[in-house]
Write a protein that binds this DNA or RNA. Sequence first.
DNA 1: TGATTTTGGTTTATTTTATAAACTAATTTA
DNA 2: TAAATTAGTTTATAAAATAAACCAAAATCA
Lengths: 94, 94
Amino acid sequence: MFKELDPLLHSQLRLGVMSLLMSMESAEFGFLKEKTNATAGNLSAQLDKLSEAGYITIEKSFKGKYPLTTCMITKKGLKAFEEYVNTLKQYIHK
Amino acid sequence: MFKELDPLLHSQLRLGVMSLLMSMESAEFGFLKEKTNATAGNLSAQLDKLSEAGYITIEKSFKGKYPLTTCMITKKGLKAFEEYVNTLKQYIHK
DNA sequence: TGATTTTGGTTTATTTTATAAACTAATTTA
DNA sequence: TAAATTAGTTTATAAAATAAACCAAAATCA
């Protein structure tokens, strides 16, 4: 009856991150933290999971003198997000 | 930026149950179990949570000689479901 | 008729997730 | 130079999901 909801995406914080990354080229750690209202620790952990799943890439560099973590959605992540949304529709309407 | 997703509804099984109950007067335990593909133990536990939150009512009776558990969504549950769906839209489109 | 299976669940234990708190390291600023 | 800030990571704890074990009555089977 109901299709499985990708457990990696069915998490408020990870879904918020992916939602943001769907609409922009890339996003910095601090930006994601502010938009999602997550703590740095939690965000760090959840980004790792998304990265390990191949849904995003994480690039570490420097912005001037401070470390900078930049995230980008991958093609695989994009597909997963779209499928998640489709599956979700099964649950939320009708 | 993102509104909180009601954690009681942001669970595959509980959401599935609520989704079913949105579209019918009432549903029996066995029916929900079959439709959601849940194990009895898990379903039992999640129904309790929905009931304690006041999102559903659970009625225990007998169907012939066997016990029968019947669930119904409450007005509060209906409102919560609708709000969950609205909040979710923030996450899934744009 | 007694043993075994089935129905319809609940309870308990385990695993997995989410989250907060503590920590690291470099950099500013007072 | 001591304290505070930036930008995170790691570790510990709390909460949630789930599986496995259990229970009681009824039905089936041998």
